[in-house]
Design a protein around this nucleic acid. Structure first.
Lengths: 221, 221
DNA sequence: GAGGCTAATGGCAGCCACTGACACTTGACG
DNA sequence: CGTCAAGTGTCAGTGGCTGCCATTAGCCTC
């Protein structure tokens, strides 16, 4: 209540309805499965009509990504705040980690962190949602590429390096998310650790002779 | 007619129906748009019932990816055939290029190359199709990671490098496809050239000081 | 080459996601 | 308080997709 004047009753009501819809949707999705949940059920749980649901969300999927969207926006802010002396990949890496560290503050007004983590897992394991997730990620990547290009004073379309760097970073993050979601530790610390571990492997993975160089930790092969 | 004995009339008929459905679907998609085309229209163009369409394809999308699927299978074969002395990224690079070079032989029995290229473009520009495309790519990546791990005699789950290498490669390929599809040159040579150009940028993009090192070609910034 | 088996197909009823149109309710504001 | 607009509910309709059952058409055997 210091940046915005005062929301007004109408706005507050809208926000409450929307948050309730998101909560109900995620709760249902994570318990009965995404396809096993109908829009009517979500609407009924919040006591609004199906039509109203579609006034808040363009589709059933959109409700599933509402919270993720908040964290992505926050991530972009964090990248913007990284000091200019850091290399692109370094800045991205620190921003991601910071994003995990501040996750709770970002989303607590809508849902508890635990439900969000289960949602993340659901997305990775539901083909229809995974597809949308990947497309959304592609959009995010484009924004990131522009940010990085700006940081380095380059033209995104003239110099391929911003997009390539982001593609590399993003590709590794995907592998991380996938591995995390199929493991048994669903905690935030778990994905934080995985993130650093995989990012550290980019250099070695691009080296020519894998077997000769060996990895850092014990490896019997 | 040397590997397989003889398909039998029933099988041939099925194959013809399927190919006809793919052709009709792609023709309609690329001319009227994906969402602007109904399954009934596709079925009617081939003179079968809507129900039959869904016996050949699990969904409307699947018809859009039928040809792409063939090229991906061929690509995997090419990767398998790369000599063991090549580094993972080198093998992947050569396999992709070879795949473009042999594209026509791979798909000519179903549709002309030109229609395939327009389909590719359609996929990249249609959100619903792009989403599915990216998920399919993720599945392909997983197979690739296993192939690479096998090549190098590693365990995919113990060593992160195969997945990371594939993620990097795949990320770059995505940027390539996106750039190609939004350009004006829809030719195969065009995407071939772009492929090599972008893959050559992986090294430079990961370097620390972008501005100091500069790019290889003229750059006024 | 007649008859039986099974795969392939068509037609139909129904579910669900989603949309447009219209009428009704309810904050906002002079 | 009355007007206006934003928000909501209802309903009818479209399109993707599935299950069920009846019908057709290759295939195989005698």
């Amino acid at each position: 209540m210091d940046t915005l004047p005062r929301p007004g009753l109408r706005e507050r009501k809208k926000r409450r309805t929307r948050d309730a819809l998101v909560r109900a949707a995620l709760e249902l999705f994570t318990s009965k499965g995404y396809e096993g949940t109908t829009v009517d059920e979500i609407a009924e749980a919040v006591d609004v009509s199906q039509r109203t649901f579609f006034r808040y969300f363009a589709g059933k999927e959109e409700a599933a990504f509402a919270v993720l969207e908040m964290t992505e926006a926050h991530f972009l802010d964090l990248v913007r705040e990284r000091p200019p002396h850091e290399s692109p990949l370094e800045a991205l890496r620190r921003a991601v980690l910071e994003n995990w560290d501040t996750l709770n503050e970002t989303i607590e007004s809508v849902i508890p962190v635990e439900l969000h983590m289960r949602t993340f897992q659901l997305i990775e394991s539901t083909p229809a949602l995974l597809a949308v997730h990947l497309r959304r990620t592609a959009v995010l990547e484009e924004k990131l590429a522009h940010l990085i290009a700006e940081r380095e004073g380059l033209d995104v379309d003239a110099d391929p390096r911003p997009r390539v760097a982001v593609a590399v970073f993003s590709g590794v993050m995907r592998v991380t998310g996938q591995r995390w979601s199929t493991g048994d530790d669903i905690s935030v610390e778990s994905i934080r650790t995985l993130t650093t571990a995989y990012l550290d492997q980019v250099g070695p993975a691009l080296a020519k002779g894998w077997n000769v160089q060996g990895k850092t930790d014990g490896d019997t092969a």
